[in-house]
Design a protein around this nucleic acid. Sequence first.
DNA 1: GGTAACGTTTCATAAATATTCAAACAGACG
DNA 2: CGTCTGTTTGAATATTTATGAAACGTTACC
Lengths: 159, 159
Amino acid sequence: MKRYRQSAILDLVSREAICSQDALGRQLRARGFHATQATISRDIKELQLVKRASDGAYERPGTSEGGRGLADAALRRAILEYLRRVDLVQQLLVLRTDPGQAQPLALAIDRAELPEVVGTVAGDDTILVITRHARAGREVTRLFEGWAMDDRAHPRQAF
Amino acid sequence: MKRYRQSAILDLVSREAICSQDALGRQLRARGFHATQATISRDIKELQLVKRASDGAYERPGTSEGGRGLADAALRRAILEYLRRVDLVQQLLVLRTDPGQAQPLALAIDRAELPEVVGTVAGDDTILVITRHARAGREVTRLFEGWAMDDRAHPRQAF
DNA sequence: GGTAACGTTTCATAAATATTCAAACAGACG
DNA sequence: CGTCTGTTTGAATATTTATGAAACGTTACC
């Protein structure tokens, strides 16, 4: 019984957004399975499902987009907020922040997962960003500097 | 305030398994943020975090891979355990680990005293390994990747 | 047959999370 | 300055989820 029910659960959550175990229970009943909320709670744990906070729906891990655009926006904000100076040495980008701010900025860079960026190493006020090659480094430098400039300049200005 | 708190939340959940909003609240308090469970609930929704049913921990989507800290061991053992990704750029090797695991892995690499390796710099989840030249870099890359592959072949299940 | 061992389910309840609503706060504008 | 307007927050509360304990069903064994 359990097997069938659990595979029905997987099927259901992949088809539509189901936001509570009660809702899941009702759907299951419609398919001929009768199970209480307690049972469903255990099924969900065994299936290693995940509950999205944004809308409360259950899903299998890795199924979701991950909010690419959001991470980008966050990076932009972080750069505006934290970045003080940029230096490029070949494919290595050295970023300076105010003391203690390197970690959050590096985190934002990591999360954005820019294709040119291989990785970052952050200390207290310095971040080393490794890009694939010097050209990629120049691109990222230009990108970051542009965003940092937005702060100082006025938003209306055409570039 | 919200901005800072939310980025602290992302940082916290990426570092360790936090299974309840109360726990998150306590961690935040330790970092100087005071927020009630209600506020944290909203933050989590805005950050689009996800709660794993298997252990109840929060994570950002796509990060599915259980991270935990274990005792130190030989380099091979450490690589199996910690290494997630390898990138080679000329003579520079960029290793990625799960959050917070870079230090132990870098330590293991240092201790192994590989002849091709000049030195390492480790951040939170990234290690920069400097080898003598590109050829040495390729060799080390191949070595590490081979060991990391062993992991994929015999994956450890969480729980 | 009896009964021990095990896995599964339910019930009752504890724990965790989301939401409602009102108050505090922050800018923009007169 | 005060008054809008919109955002953020906490307290109280409603909703949702997890769990301990008992009960059920099955299998295996004597």
